[in-house]
Amino acid sequence: MRVFSIFIALCFSLGLSAQSRPVALDDLEIKKDPNGVTVYYLDGQAFSGKTYDFYEQENIALEHHLEQGLLTLKEGFRDGQKIEHVEFKDGILDGVYLKYFGNGQKYVEHRYQSGRMHGLQYGWEKDGTVRFVAEYKNGLEMMRMDYPPPGGFKPMIKN
């Protein structure tokens, strides 16, 4: 009985609770609010905290940060190296969306506002050279510049 009492006291002193146990995103109940935004619940309460998922076959770990049931941040890691960073506001994609190559070099950097691409967007090759630059306004592409492949473009006009 004394060992059990010490264990309970230790749990409370460390601040351990049911909410602090590792939780996977699949453990949460999903509901849509009146605006169609996904809200996550655990044991009937809007979940606040992190979820942890691991996909052994690809060696990918995902962390989802939630506040009051709404996504605020998603981060992905492969072999401990960050491969994805996605920001949300009120559960909707809003902010920076980054993906990385396995060598740590950025693959794409997109910006979102209220779930739509907005602002400058960038893409890179694995060696760090720019692949494209685009500008979006409320989800519509306003401008795009794709950079030539190695060796350049073949001329269309012959002398």
Rank of each mutant, 00 (worst) to 15 (best):
I60P: 00
E141D: 01
P22E: 08
L66K: 03
Y41W: 11
V96N: 03
G44V: 03
G44A: 00
P22K: 14
G115R: 08
Y136W: 05
E84H: 08
K126E: 12
V86E: 13
K158E: 14
G151E: 11
G80F: 12
V39A: 05
M143R: 13
G80A: 12
L14Y: 06
I8S: 13
R144N: 12
K82I: 14
K31F: 07
P155N: 09
V133P: 00
Y112R: 11
G128W: 07
I30K: 10
E63A: 12
K137R: 13
L93T: 08
G80C: 13
I8L: 15
E29Q: 13
R78S: 09
F77Y: 12
D27L: 09
K158G: 01
F12W: 03
V37I: 11
F7C: 04
F4Q: 10
G104V: 05
G76P: 10
S48A: 02
A134F: 04
Q81A: 14
D27T: 13
T72C: 03
Y136T: 06
Y97H: 15
P155R: 04
Q45D: 11
Q81E: 15
M117P: 08
E141R: 08
D146P: 06
D79P: 02
E87Q: 11
F47V: 01
P150L: 07
K32F: 15
F47M: 01
E87C: 07
Y52F: 10
Q45N: 11
S48W: 01
L73C: 10
E84L: 09
K106C: 03
L10H: 00
P150F: 02
Y40Q: 05
R144L: 14
H110K: 14
N35E: 14
L62T: 03
K82S: 02
Y107Q: 15
R111Q: 13
V133D: 02
N159D: 13
Y97Q: 07
L16S: 11
W124M: 07
G104T: 13
V133M: 02
G123K: 04
G80N: 14
D127A: 02
E75C: 05
K31V: 13
V23C: 07
A18N: 06
A24D: 01
R2Q: 10
L120S: 02
D53M: 10
A61M: 11
S20L: 02
F153T: 05
L42N: 07
L14G: 12
E58Q: 05
K82W: 11
I157N: 09
F101N: 08
